[in-house]
Simulated assay, not measured.
Amino acid sequence: MATSFSLAFLVVAYLVVVSIESSNAQLTTNFYSTSCPNLFSTVKSVMQSAINKEARMGASILRMFFHDCFVNGCDGSVLLDDTSTFTGEKNAIPNKDSLRGFEVIDQIKTAVEKACPGVVSCADILAIAARDSVVILKGPTWNVKLGRRDATTASQSAANNNLAPPTSSLSDLITNYKNQGLSTTDMVALSGAHTIGQARCITFRTRVNNESNIDTSFATTRQSTCPSVVSNTTNNNLAPLDVQTPNTWDNNYYKNLINQKGLLHSDQQLFSGGSTNALVQTYSTNPTQFNTDFVNAMINMGNIKPLTGTNGQIRKNCRTIN
Rank of each mutant, 00 (worst) to 15 (best):
M187C: 12
D186F: 05
G274M: 01
A123M: 09
L137W: 00
N209P: 06
S22K: 04
A130K: 10
S45L: 15
S266W: 15
L39N: 02
A8E: 10
S183P: 14
Y253P: 06
A151G: 02
L126R: 08
K53A: 13
T285G: 01
F290T: 09
S35V: 11
S6C: 10
S224N: 10
V11W: 05
V134W: 00
L238P: 07
N161E: 12
A123Q: 07
M298E: 13
Q313P: 09
Q48T: 15
C226V: 05
M298G: 04
S121E: 09
Q180T: 07
S98L: 09
K114P: 03
K114S: 12
A219P: 13
A158V: 11
N162L: 12
D250E: 03
K53V: 10
T221G: 14
T308K: 15
T206S: 10
A111P: 05
M57H: 03
S212Q: 10
H67W: 15
R56Y: 15
F290Q: 15
T320L: 14
P240C: 08
F40W: 09
D242W: 00
F102C: 06
S33K: 08
L137Y: 04
S171L: 11
S41D: 13
N176D: 03
E211F: 07
T233R: 11
V11S: 07
V243S: 04
S98W: 08
N311T: 13
S224Q: 13
L39F: 04
A123G: 05
L163R: 06
S168W: 08
V17G: 01
L263M: 09
T110W: 05
S35I: 03
K255D: 00
L99N: 12
A219R: 03
S23A: 11
L62C: 14
A59L: 14
N161Q: 09
